[in-house]
């Protein structure tokens, strides 16, 4: 990888950790969704076991039918469709978060696995690294 500080050199090669990126913020109101997505795309180059989860307002990131022309901001919702090309295929959505927002899988721009809260909690608990926005 890179010229890391000395005490981080050992043991870095070949390590595969479970990374979970937790998306809890709606897009556009703040930049977290967009910049969060940028980290996920970069992580693909590191051959880690990556999951991306959408809970709370994060589920709004995946909604279909977005038109950002009027707010003069880039529409990055299409990028979620490109994740597959980066071998990031583990996308999970919490059912309770969708329900609370009147959404179903049909409203989402990508195929996801819907988990109940207990399943999501267990998935989170088995991760090595959890990065949240």
């Amino acid at each position: 990888m890179s010229d890391m500080m000395d005490d981080m050199d050992e043991g870095g090669e070949g390590v595969v950790k479970k990374f979970m990126f937790v998306n809890r913020k709606a897009p556009h109101g703040t930049i977290y969704a967009l910049e969060g997505l940028e980290v996920v795309l970069i992580s693909a180059a590191f051959d880690q076991d990556v999951s991306m989860v959408f809970v709370d307002d994060g589920v709004y990131e995946l909604i279909k039918g977005v038109n950002t022309k009027g707010i003069e901001v880039k529409d990055f919702s299409k990028t979620y469709r490109a994740l597959e090309g980066y071998d990031i295929e583990k996308l999970y959505v919490e059912k309770a978060s969708m329900d609370a927002r009147g959404l179903t899988e049909d409203d989402l721009i990508v195929d996801v696995t819907v988990l109940d809260s207990a399943e999501m909690a267990n998935l989170m608990a088995e991760q090595d690294v959890v990065i949240s926005y």
């Binding site: 937790v22 809890r24 977290y32 989170m124 608990a125 991760q127 090595d128 690294v129 959890v130 949240s132 926005y133």
Partner: peptide
Amino acid sequence: HNSCQSWL
């Protein structure tokens, strides 16, 4: 703990 999550 084996991992941590910040609920920002």
